[in-house]
């Protein structure tokens, strides 16, 4: 029952959405709208589940004083400080909720956003280091990739664009047309079509109960 019921729900839900897409909406009514509302509500519960899960996972090391428990405690404290004031009613205090001037907003603007931006910005350092150490023209394919990457990197910035214009004023447009709009698009289309076929196959596997990893089973 534990397995059959979720598979039946997945099958019927998937079938309903496919049917709504194919059949005349007047005949099936607003079944699609109803189902999508359910999905949105379930989506909201998954966010709550995520909060409960992260607190549970990090609570145990704190209680047991495991190695690095201070990091876990900092995480729980951060969740509490950001989440609790954000869900309390604004009518109690303008510091609650998520509007500008709230506790959540202050922490988000002054801590969360700069930390996330910093993490992302650090990629520039790693990319430069990796480019120096690993980006080698070891064979024909790697050389082709390296040359193309260099051309595109130059084309994407004013200094490189200026250089190309000095060689031939049409060069930036030619790169856009033939490298980005030609070779790149051909490859991207292949990837997109492959991914779409893969998504369709996975959906079918879920509906037929072959793919069960969403139930925590393999």
């Amino acid at each position: 029952m534990k397995t059959k019921l979720p598979i039946a729900i997945a099958f019927l839900s998937g079938l309903a959405m496919v049917a709504v897409f194919i059949l005349n909406p007047e005949k099936v009514g607003d079944m699609e709208g109803e189902l999508l509302q359910w999905t949105t509500v379930i989506g909201g519960f998954t966010l709550l589940l995520g909060v409960v899960s992260i607190v549970r996972v990090n609570w145990r090391p704190v209680v047991r004083r495991e190695t690095g428990w201070l990091n876990n405690a900092a995480l729980i404290l951060s969740v509490a400080v950001m989440a609790i004031p954000s869900v309390l009613p604004v009518s109690w205090s303008p510091l609650f909720g998520t509007d500008g001037g709230s506790i959540y907003d202050w922490f988000f603007i002054n801590l969360s956003a700069p930390m996330m931006a910093t993490m992302f910005a650090m990629l520039a350092f790693y990319v430069a280091s990796a480019a120096f150490r690993a980006f080698r023209a070891r064979n024909a394919e790697a050389t082709l990739l390296l040359v193309t990457a260099t051309i595109v990197m130059l084309w994407r910035v004013p200094v490189g664009e200026g250089l190309f214009v000095a060689i031939n004023p049409r060069l930036p447009n030619l790169i856009n047309t033939y490298v980005m709009g030609g070779v790149n698009v051909a490859v991207q289309r292949g990837i997109i079509i492959g991914a779409a076929l893969g998504a369709a196959a996975t959906s079918l596997r879920i509906m037929l109960g072959i793919e069960r990893t969403y139930m925590g089973k393999t």
Binding site: A128, A131, R133, F135, L146, R156, G160
Partner: peptide, 16 residues
């Protein structure tokens, strides 16, 4: 971004 791209290209060339 111009300078960073030039620098990375320089590193790629020097590395190779």
């Amino acid at each position: 971004q111009s300078m960073a791209h030039l620098l990375i290209i320089g590193f790629v060339i020097a590395g190779n």
